[in-house]
Nucleic acid binder design. Sequence first.
RNA 1: GCGGAAUUGGUGAAGUGGUUAACACGCCGGAUUGUGGCUCCGGUACGCGUGGGUUCGAUCCCCACAUUUCGCC
Length: 371
Amino acid sequence: MKVEYRLKKTEAHTKARLGEIIYGNKVYETPMFMPVGTQATVKTLSPEQVASCNSGIILANTYHLWLRPGEDIVRSAGGLHKFMNYDGPILTDSGGFQVFSLAKKKDITPDGVYFKNQYNGDKLFLTPEKSIAIQEALGSDIAISFDECVAWPADRKYVEESVKRTLEWAKRGKEAHTRSDQSLFGVVQGGEYPDLREYCAKELIKMNFDGYTVGGTSVGEDKETMYKMVGYATKHLPEDKVRYLMGVGDPIDIVENVIRGIDIFDCVSPTRLARHGNALTKYGKINIKNSQYKSDFTPISDVCDCYACKNYTKAYIHHLIKCDETFGQTLLSIHNIRYLIHLTEELREAIKNDSILEYREKFIEDYYGTK
RNA sequence: GCGGAAUUGGUGAAGUGGUUAACACGCCGGAUUGUGGCUCCGGUACGCGUGGGUUCGAUCCCCACAUUUCGCC
């Protein structure tokens, strides 16, 4: 089902936006954080547990589901929602990032990308049309245009050519897109070059996508560079369309980029950190494996309302993680996802109150201050 | 009682007459940003059963003792 975006308010002192995503008869507020469920599951969590974090949209991944189990299987199952038993909105990433991140050998041509599956040696070829066709078969609510995610740093000449390719692919994907019940977002690339970001954004806007994403960040650049890149992109994006910053989920990055006009985020970090024993808290990230938590019988956070914090102690979770028990990963995943979603809830309040700069100041003081 | 073998960190263990005693696990930390979950990176024995001896030098050679273990009576 297609999603619609409604801008409700812009914060008085910044570009931060309060908005709504309408999904049938459900309404979700933005700024929003989307948990990632690459293989049609948010790792270690049931849909009910994800929902208990007050989640809205969740992600799944085109590339992974294309290879396993194959988009035809998902279509035969009745689509992604039925297949994974999730009745909220689902967004699929295009596969562009996987080409960038996990194909060692790749051959980028004007037509598409040839690359080798490094685990079984299969030759793979992904094109904009193919990416769209897979996403339509999967039946996600939001599809993403196939793009080239450029590494950082990259010289201007390369980024310029890459942006042209991404735009060409966006156009081809848009033309190939047939499902009227599925939204399609375009990806703004352009690296750290303001004019290329502007060019990319404006060309995409001409194609009239349902929403716009900022890509090519969180690829190793420093934070200031990331914030600049985001600013270069959002500056030229239309007010009445949703803006999604792909792959960003460090708490401070969410705060900073909401201030720069981003509405939605996704990131694997809350679940990956959880699997490795880390918990996000108001006062910074903690490693639950540290020996100091062995006999700490308090919750991860006394200001958190998640299932883990309401029912379990740090000592218990410390023990589970030390023993490699999946339930420990589950509890930390619930906590971390809830933490990020709660962060966006607080940001919404701050936008309503026109106090987001004060919120940022306090946030940094708490998160990075000495405990 | 007699004979053999063994004795290296928290654990399993490798090793050499001469710089920083391998490796693994554990333990102590760190990393992790559009996810091939169970990963990656650091640190971790002032010491080689105890006491003597040989030697320029011994964890490694010799002797005694202790402990463990196997076999025999």
